[in-house]
């Protein structure tokens, strides 16, 4: 009984499966944190969550970027200045010392769950 309760508190339900857009990104607000969520139905894993704030452009736009495969790695290209951020860990491919926060994310039925330290 207690075990299930603990998992539920760590994982936060952010939205429904139907709120996502296949092969693209959306943005969710978790606390006061903007998180970009990507849903790639044909990939494994299918879900990715990274910070929505683009520190180079200084704007919350990552969720609106285009998903691009660069040298075999899945990334999102920032819509403003086109740097690539790795979807699974937020690493910027062009600037070594820039890395966005990334968060565990998963489906539970139709719910989308995310794990964020607040």
């Amino acid at each position: 009984m207690s075990e299930v309760a603990i998992t539920r508190t760590e994982w936060l339900q952010v939205c429904k499966r139907s709120d996502l857009v296949a092969n693209s990104g959306v943005c969710a607000l978790v606390g006061d944190r903007q998180v970009a969520l990507f849903f790639l139905p044909d990939q494994e894993p299918q879900l990715y969550a990274i910070d929505n704030w683009d520190p180079i452009a200084n704007a919350g736009v990552i969720g609106r970027g285009l998903v691009a495969e660069i040298d075999g790695e899945l990334t999102v290209a920032s819509p403003l200045y086109k740097q690539h951020y790795r979807l699974n860990d937020g690493q910027c491919l062009e600037e070594e010392d820039i890395k966005l926060d990334s968060f565990p994310i998963a489906f539970e039925g139709d719910d989308v769950l995310i794990k964020i330290d607040q």
């Binding site: 296949a22 092969n23 609106r64 970027g65 285009l66 403003l80």
Partner: peptide, 18 residues
């Protein structure tokens, strides 16, 4: 949907502050 540049996706031009 997933093919478009952001400007095409939202049918508007993104400016520097998003």
């Amino acid at each position: 949907v997933g093919l478009q540049d952001t400007n095409d996706t939202f049918m508007a031009n993104m400016q520097k502050n998003g």
